[in-house]
Write a protein that binds this DNA or RNA. Structure first.
Lengths: 221, 221
DNA sequence: CTAGCTATACTTAGCAT
DNA sequence: GATGCTAAGTATAGCTA
């Protein structure tokens, strides 16, 4: 039944955060769907790969990806494994943007040094090529990898492991020097994350993953 | 000047890959812009965080992210910090499923294309510099982090370590079962990755990182 | 490639269910 | 929260400059 409404139909809205909580929720749903649809169309029309990740205010995660969010994010993040550790802490440090630079401690200076060495020696283009090659081999069926590729795989793991060790040592030292915990029980305020998400849209799209790791370890890198 | 065109204005198009290469390029540009705009609006209207990654047919990477692609991708991937390795396994298995060499070659071709583009347009040094800039957060004084943050940091590291161990075990097993090496000397072919991308839209978005580490270890996970 | 133009296809705000 | 509606607001396909 149609009310005698003066204005029925879409109305222009200000481009700022929607105030009415209910409206916001509805708009979020609708526009999110619209966004994913657009992305899907872009994929089919232009034959490209797209990944979208949306964190709702409620903390839910909605993702769209063609062919997979994972693979695209992976391609995007093809860089040092150790960067992942850094990024894992990104948000933490982000909240300390105003930190006082002069407090730079010796341990972090070491990291600086590493970076410098890297800048000096790094052969950018070679690394690009190299990285491309690596991405290639590990996408291949493992059964078809030659011993050489397996060796590279192994080296990648070694690298990862080692970097974890290095980063951990440095941070461990820093942590200790800040004497914040003698024997903190790792009760995981920040147990690492897990992702929960509600996927939507009926397109070959993002997948859902949920992880959570128990932890009951000591920091003994 | 207006021609006497029978149909001037938008026309409906089939939802399949655009045939005419030129049209495809234009449509890609326009729709990509539209997609990013929609995303941006979603951010402001609903106060949510969104990241979009698009791989163009040419291999270029376009990304949108609020506040940063990195931070969002990070949150998304908070399952395992060693995603690269994890995803490596994932892709290996995935590809193994239909071991289609043609597809793999396509991937390779795509990568080659990326590299070409990168070689032509990429400014390695600038990228390195850019990467350095992004380093700011871990150069920040760790001493100013609260104990809570430090604990979270610690937990993140614990998680990383543990996952490295897990992934390594899995791969180690796979590697061994393929009996390719008795005592391979780890000569470190596999330096780490890189990231290249062509960012667009004037929003705080993605960055580039480059790393490389010496290694001289044994595989003793 | 980037930038209009125009008419039309598509999206969606506010309501009601 | 999720639909469905309707009219108004936007995005854009095909061209041209």
């Amino acid at each position: 039944m149609v009310k005698n409404n003066p204005v029925q139909g879409r109305r222009k809205i200000e481009m700022k955060k929607i105030a009415k909580k209910n409206n916001l929720q509805v708009t979020f749903s609708k526009r999110r769907a619209g966004l994913f649809k657009k992305a899907s169309e872009l994929c089919t029309l232009c034959g490209v790969d797209v990944a979208i990740i949306v964190f709702s205010p409620a903390g839910k995660v909605f993702s769209f990806g063609h062919p997979h969010v994972e693979s695209i994010v992976d391609r995007f993040l093809t860089r040092s494994p150790s960067v992942r550790i850094f990024d894992a802490c990104y948000n933490i440090v982000e909240t300390h943007r105003d930190a006082n630079i002069r407090e730079l401690n010796a341990h972090l200076a070491q990291l600086d040094e590493m970076l410098e060495v890297e800048k000096r020696n790094g052969e950018a283009l070679d690394e690009v090529r190299e990285a491309g090659r690596r991405q290639w081999w590990w996408q291949a069926p493992i059964g078809e990898l030659g011993s050489n590729e397996l060796q590279q795989l192994r080296n990648a793991l070694l690298e990862l492991k080692m970097n974890v060790g290095k980063q951990a040592e440095l941070l461990q030292a820093a942590v200790e020097s800040s004497n914040c915990w003698p024997f903190l029980a790792p009760n995981g305020v920040g147990t690492s994350g897990f992702g929960c998400e509600g996927n939507e849209i009926n397109v070959p799209s993002g997948t859902t993953q949920m992880y959570k790791f128990d932890q009951d370890l000591y920091l003994d890198f």
